[in-house]
Each structure stands twice: as C-alpha cells, then as structure tokens.
Amino acid sequence: MNNNVKSNFKSNLFKLFAALVLAFTAIVAVQTFTTNTSTNQTVQAATLSRRERAAKEWIAMHESGGSYTARNDVCYGKYQLNIAYLHGNLSARNQERVADQYVYRRYGSWVNAKRFWLAHHWY
C-alpha cells in the first residue's frame, strides 16, 4: 500500500469515527431532552391547580363517567385514550400519566383541553 492510499484510508476511517460519535451524541441529547420533558410533564400533573384538576375531572366524567375500564372502539379508560398510547399497560397510574402527557403536549393544559372539548365534543 502506498502512502497516499494509507493516508486516504486513515482519513476516511477518522471521518467515519467522527460521524458515529456525532450521531451517538445527538441520540443521547434527544433521549435526555425527552426524559426531562416527560418528567416535567409528570411533575406538572402532580401539582395541578384547582382549576386544572376540575377540568381534568370534567373531561374524565364526560369521556368515561370516570371509569378506568370504559371502552369505546379503540379508545380505553378514564380519559378514552387511543389504546395504542397505553402500550399494553392499562393501569390507572399509566392512564393518568399518559393522559397528562397527551394533554400537555397537545393543549398545554387541562383547561385548554376542556375548552377544545366544549367546542368539538372530543379532545
């Protein structure tokens, strides 16, 4: 192997390694952001204001009568979430967590979700 071929091989190998390191760093950053976002949403849900709790309960009563086992086609539980969102875990705790995540991502608050529900009869 001449020096030029060796040099190109080393250069390409270095570029490949650098690309892999960059990709791995990006994946770790996205996972960290996602974990922090989920944690923040869970914490937000745990400290709901009286108004937020009232809106959340209102939606639950209108969606399922407050039943964690209510079913309507592909929707399930107290908040009538698409059953796929629950990833096979139908527990009350998971329903609460997933409902909070869904509402905070889509509407920003339970009050906004209720406002949407009143206009469209779904959320």
Rank of each mutant, 00 (worst) to 15 (best):
M1N: 07
M1G: 14
M1F: 08
N2R: 07
N3W: 10
N3F: 11
N4W: 05
N4M: 09
N4P: 00
N4D: 10
V5M: 10
K6F: 08
K6L: 14
S7I: 02
S7W: 01
S7F: 07
S7Q: 08
S7P: 00
N8T: 00
N8Y: 09
N8S: 09
F9W: 07
F9I: 11
F9L: 15
K10P: 00
K10D: 05
K10R: 13
S11E: 11
N12D: 10
N12Q: 14
F14A: 14
F14Y: 09
F14R: 12
K15N: 12
K15E: 13
L16Q: 10
F17K: 12
A18D: 03
A18G: 04
A19G: 08
A19R: 09
A19E: 05
L20G: 14
L22H: 00
A23L: 13
A23V: 11
A23E: 02
F24Y: 10
F24C: 09
F24S: 11
F24I: 07
T25H: 04
T25E: 05
A26W: 00
I27W: 02
V28C: 12
A29N: 01
A29M: 08
V30C: 05
V30D: 03
V30F: 07
Q31C: 12
Q31R: 08
T32P: 02
T32F: 15
T32N: 11
F33E: 10
F33R: 08
F33D: 07
F33L: 13
T34N: 12
T34M: 12
T34A: 15
T34E: 13
T35L: 15
N36R: 10
N36W: 07
T37L: 15
T37S: 14
T37V: 11
T37Q: 15
S38D: 09
T39A: 12
T39W: 03
T39N: 10
T39L: 10
N40Q: 10
Q41Y: 09
Q41C: 01
T42N: 03
Q44F: 04
Q44N: 09
A45D: 05
A45Q: 03
A46P: 01
T47Q: 13
T47Y: 11
T47F: 11
T47I: 07
T47L: 08
T47G: 05
L48T: 01
R50P: 04
R50F: 04
R50Q: 07
R50I: 05
R51A: 15
R51W: 02
E52Q: 04
E52V: 01
R53M: 12
A54P: 00
A54L: 06
A54C: 03
K56H: 02
K56D: 02
E57H: 03
E57S: 06
W58V: 01
I59T: 01
I59R: 00
A60S: 07
A60E: 01
M61L: 12
M61K: 12
H62Y: 04
H62I: 00
E63H: 00
S64H: 03
G65H: 03
G66P: 01
Y68R: 01
Y68Q: 03
T69Y: 09
T69I: 13
A70V: 05
A70W: 08
A70T: 04
A70I: 05
D73G: 04
V74S: 13
C75N: 13
C75Y: 15
Y76Q: 02
Y76F: 15
G77Y: 08
G77R: 02
K78T: 04
K78N: 03
K78L: 08
K78W: 05
Y79M: 09
Q80Y: 06
